[in-house]
Amino acid sequence: MLKINNLTVAHGAIRAIDDISFSVEKGQLAAVIGSNGAGKTTLMRTLSGLKSAENGTATWLDHNLLHGKPEHHVRQGVSHVSEGKSVIAQLTVEENLDLGALWRRNRDEAKATKEEVFHLFPRLGERRKQLADTLSGGERQMLAIGRAYMSRPALLLLDEPSLGLAPLVIEQIFQSIRHIVDSMGVTVVLVEQNAMGALKIADSGVVLNLGRIAASGKASDLIADPAVRTAYLGF
């Protein structure tokens, strides 16, 4: 499982993540919600190795997430989809996917994974030779998730996949994420500003406020919690 203990991450003098602890069980979907500047993205960048921590520990199974570069973590089964549709616009859909599996030795398995992605997101299969630049926002997000899935992760870190998308498309993306957890046994940490949508599909949730944990627990309990409702769910 994913274990985070007393993690502190600083941006210069500001503590973006201030002494937080939580854990996510294997095969579960955890939503991390909170307003802008709560430290959600910083948390994700730290877990994937893009940013270094000041203090604390973070481990996935027996793998130390606070040590080593992102390309190292990918090989240990930890994939990160960064904020803002992380695809490479100048490459084709298929090239973006292939990129995610370049490090894998077994080419046949990589090919099979690609077919899985096309099965999960048929739209990508239809557009495999198109440049990623020509895709819609929703398709780009599918491609970003598909690219991360190409490395066959055990832990998938998703940073705001709903950003800038229409409600219907968000619904579709969220369903696909739930599908990845249920059918493929992937553990997912989902960072979202769309708190209600994320909690609805999640098993557990963590509410971040100014770098600290304001509330945490089962997703259904958080939805029912009056304090969380007024502050983060807007009713």
């Binding site: 893009l50 570069k69 090989r75 991360a148």
Partner: peptide, 9 residues
């Protein structure tokens, strides 16, 4: 950065 996240050295 994206290349790195995709596992490219």
């Amino acid at each position: 950065e994206i290349a790195q996240l995709a596992g490219i050295r």
